[in-house]
Design a binder for these strands. Sequence first.
DNA 1: AAAAAAC
Length: 495
Amino acid sequence: MTKFKDLNLSEETLKAIDKMGFEEATPIQAETIPLGLSGKDIIGQAQTGTGKTTAFGIPMVEKIDTKNDSIQGLIIAPTRELAIQVSEELYRIGGGKRARVLAVYGGQDIQRQIRALKQRPHIIVGTPGRILDHINRRTLKLENIQTLVLDEADEMLNMGFIQDIESILSNVPAERQTLLFSATMPGPIRAIAERFMKDPEMIKVKAKEMTVSNIDQYFVKVPQREKFDVLARLMDSHSPELAIIFGRTKRRVDELANALSLRGYQAEGIHGDLTQAKRLTVLNRFKSGKIDVLVATDVAARGLDISGVTHVYNYDIPQDPESYVHRIGRTGRAGKEGMAVTLVDPREMSYLREVERTTKKRMEPMEAPSWDDALVGLQQGAVTELEEAISKNEWAEYRVFAKDILDQYSPEDVVAAALKLITKEPDRTPVHITNEAALPQRRDKFRSKNSGGGGYRKSSGGGGRQGGGRSYGNRDRKGGSGGSGGGGRRKYSSN
DNA sequence: AAAAAAC
């Protein structure tokens, strides 16, 4: 086991690391830090949670000359939240040396950022679009960059980002050290990466540590229209402490979050159409436990380090196998156990096998829980709640009542009644999630104009559900969760 | 085909 003490770091940085509570280096840190200090280019394959940010953050901070007022380190990240998270960690590492760190990302007042840039930061952490914006405004000068980091590079070098990255790189001196980190390392990405780097050293965290050994992976075969009920029953029977549900589109995430709230879950959605302020509030509410279900697009799939996520549910199987790896990596972090359940429509089974081939790990089939299973889960939740209340020991003043009751009834009956009282029974409010994920191979002729979901099924879908009618009767119009079918396509059909 | 990222 390597200790930070043995890595030839400066007093100031060691102190900062100690303050962060770190003593032993993780495998990726033990390998990356000495190489990074030596000035080599590095390609590192590791997910966040392996201590990747600290691995590149320490050598970067060590190389900063704080007497020099120019920007010497640049870190590029694929999402705004990730840029913020990374900048916070760099700030902590650089605290001892008083290195100035600034996050630069879209959705934030640019004048404010320009003022902050005038404070002469040493390290910039940012997203591609806004970094380019600043370069074009000449408010960000990169000619003194010595260390460049591409974080979550598989995403960064994806189509769409690649041009932005190239433009940014053309503004960074060729004489520099480049570090590239990525959770997955498909061949084409590797080839592109090497174009930007000089004789890079490969560092790979062992497969066992990198992937997902402490995450139990399951799939549930379920037709589209039953997905929502199955999801609710899964959550009822698992009673997750913190869960993330991934949906395929922004619309779908909105609908899911609304529908879950309607059924009494503490759930909120996050995706790229929300304002940056809203995105951060939702994330913070989830981190602080004010909500325990986060519904998200892939904006939250990568890199975000939220501790204590016990369950990841893929409402839709993700489009790219890589996305799957990232999504389920939000749980089972820091050595804890995690569970990932993917809902898969029978028509998508072959795609599921493809994902398995990529991850080289099988997902175990899981039966959809029945409503009775869900009830059992909720009953167990009630037992836990009661036990917690008992151990809190704040019920002394109720003992008088307890004596009276026990004079008349048996203890078993009393406890059973109390449990029944606090058990939240499964909510079967009918819900219809529209905007069904279109299967790739079906996107032809008739689908292109009048894309699926929407109009036709609304009435039959809501009312005709099994079990829907019991307590809420004919609520199908309102139960349809958030005025579906409107959205962007308001055109009158021409045929 | 979707999402992310600049106004």
